[in-house]
Design a protein around this nucleic acid. Structure first.
Lengths: 200, 200
DNA sequence: CCGATGGAACTGACCGGTCAGTATCGCACG
DNA sequence: CGTGCGATACTGACCGGTCAGTTCCATCGG
């Protein structure tokens, strides 16, 4: 068993636990047990509980970023790219429920750990955002996406809408065609085809 | 000083504190001090720390619901209603930053307090959602909003997008025309006018 | 042999929750 | 009016449990 393994075990257990209950309800004994690791070992890899939490969340964010980057197909239409991204994000989100939340919640919280940690937080967030934004940027270049709203802003909208949808589906399982609906909404908006001309 | 006063003081202090740092970082001594109240008094009005937290969040959610209900103007166009709602939600969100987050995070967390609290949580969330959805519902009836996506789903999208935008503005102050952009996006989507026909 | 690990035992700070005591109020009665 | 009394609201020192973080030693693999 190599060096990195223990670390990964711990982080994986931590992610599962931290995303299932609130921070203060998780004991490190629990984490150690779930990771099949001695409690002391945790402190070999992480400074303290907060550090473990933060690194876990950061890792998740990096993973999402990597997934998005790797999954945007080249040389296909805007809609297909959009669909691909939505599917990746949505799948990722379903598998690792709370990570996206952690990412989006960069803002408040985390006051302790000096601006440093705060900075790294928002850096991660911006990475993800700009990865999604690149799809829109391509779309703008191809003349398919409106240029009067910044791609990053559109990316924010998409992520927000996607998140709402995934959550909805989580609490009402069964209900269906989720992703295509999001894509369609992002592309066309809420207005019905017929009424397009009569509005603003 | 009448009966409700202390209770309100406590809840107000609690909201401020709970939304500025993480739950486990807030001590009840702190809450008591901020509310200018003896610690014991908190327990006259709230069963325990969790109860205080929950009731605080619930209250915020109810306030938002009331604000939305009260602010949707009658007998104006769909876009105007949409704009009004966006403005209310956005203003509310700015003033009481984290409440919307609490509402939207009804899902995970809160495992302790038996399904009961969970139920009340999602009830609140649905209230807000359906208040926003009513705008879309009217739009559908008037033939202006597409009927192939449920109004509640559209409401979720809107709230998600709005939230992303408000957050963005919070971390990068200065940047501007926020709400109208959201409205425009929700109505028309991301695709540029010219490209409308060529897509799916 | 040596460094890494498991994990049990320990410690001490911290904080949720309690409760005995105090202040305040409403009211009845002289 | 005042003052005595019961009830209710409130206070904050205190208690006891919990848990982050540390220490220690047996164990293991190389």
């Amino acid at each position: 068993m190599t060096r990195g393994d223990k670390r990964d075990q711990i982080m994986q257990a931590a992610e599962t636990l931290f995303t299932s209950r609130r921070f203060h309800e998780i004991t490190l004994d629990e984490v150690a047990q779930a990771a099949h690791v001695g409690k002391g070992t945790i402190y070999r890899y992480f400074k303290d509980k907060d550090d473990l939490f933060f690194q876990t969340a950061t890792k998740g964010s990096d993973d999402l970023y990597a997934v998005i980057r790797a999954s945007v197909p080249e040389g296909v239409s805007f809609e297909d790219k959009l669909l691909a991204v939505c599917e990746q994000v949505s799948a990722f989100y379903r598998k690792r429920r709370e990570i996206l939340r952690m990412i989006q919640d960069q803002e408040g919280r985390m006051p302790r750990c000096g601006g440093e940690m705060r900075r790294r937080w928002s850096e991660r967030r911006e990475n993800v955002l700009s990865a999604v934004a690149s799809v829109f940027r391509d779309g703008v270049e191809a003349g398919q996406v409106r240029s009067d709203i910044a791609p990053e802003v559109l990316a924010g909208f998409l992520l927000g809408a996607l998140r709402a949808r995934v959550r909805e589906l989580a609490s009402h399982p069964g209900g269906m065609p989720p992703i295509s609906q999001v894509v369609d909404f992002v592309i066309h908006g809420a207005v019905s085809r017929g009424a397009k001309e009569s509005i603003s």
